[in-house]
Design a binder for these strands. Sequence first.
DNA 1: TAGGCCATCTGGTCCT
DNA 2: AGGACCAGATGGCCTA
Length: 249
Amino acid sequence: MKANARERNRMHGLNDALESLRKVVPCYSKTQKLSKIETLRLAKNYIWALSEVLRSGKAPDLMSLSQPTTNLVAGCLQLNPRTFLPEQTPDMPTHLPPAGAAAYPGHFSYQSPGLTAGLPSPPYGTMDPSHIFHQVKGQPYGSLEPFFDGVLVSDGPAFDPPLSPPLSINGNFSSFKHEPVAASDYDKSFSFSVHYGGGGAGGHPSVYGSGGPNPRCGELQVEQLMGFDGHSHHERLMNAQLNAIFHDS
DNA sequence: TAGGCCATCTGGTCCT
DNA sequence: AGGACCAGATGGCCTA
């Protein structure tokens, strides 16, 4: 019994730490908790993305992303590339779709070898750009350098080999939708919200969900909520890119 | 009913 | 010896 109690407390401490982590990754939602594995993956990618921002001084370029990530960015956001990448014309895509993508424009799909899986992690959470831009932009680099010094030496993406099943993302660029979302489902303090569907069960989205339509979250939407208008177009694009990155696995 | 996620129990191993 | 850590087993809860 004593050993059990210790083990319980130990696991509670672990869960408390995980909960703290949930609150600082850009998908925190009070109503829809990220699973443990999703939290860890998201945190890993969050750190990587922020490191990229610090290293390069700009938002991560889609070209530097893995193919699944790039597909995820496009597929999940369901954005027209013109919206996503304002400088390019729809006739001559330079960033999207990535190599391996099928048809363009209008629609592409990337079928990764092996397993067929849906969106990697479909939390209903939201992302506050301040998580990234206020803390990174506003943070004097000097105070961060001691922490990152000697760490950010690699030029390549710092992603680990995929621990999760390969992604299979189907993106339809032509359907950019604005649909109202029940405000009660989300923390109103967030100004930027991206959420996407997924399968799974157990009261929360599945890590390897099928991505099937769902009354609440059948598709990822980029929405204009309060405060969103205050951001420049470019900044919104950066937010969208980063947000997508954080969901890669 | 199957599958995902979770909490808990439990035995083993390692460390102090 | 006692505590920390780990991993396997088990059962509950929930949703498709």
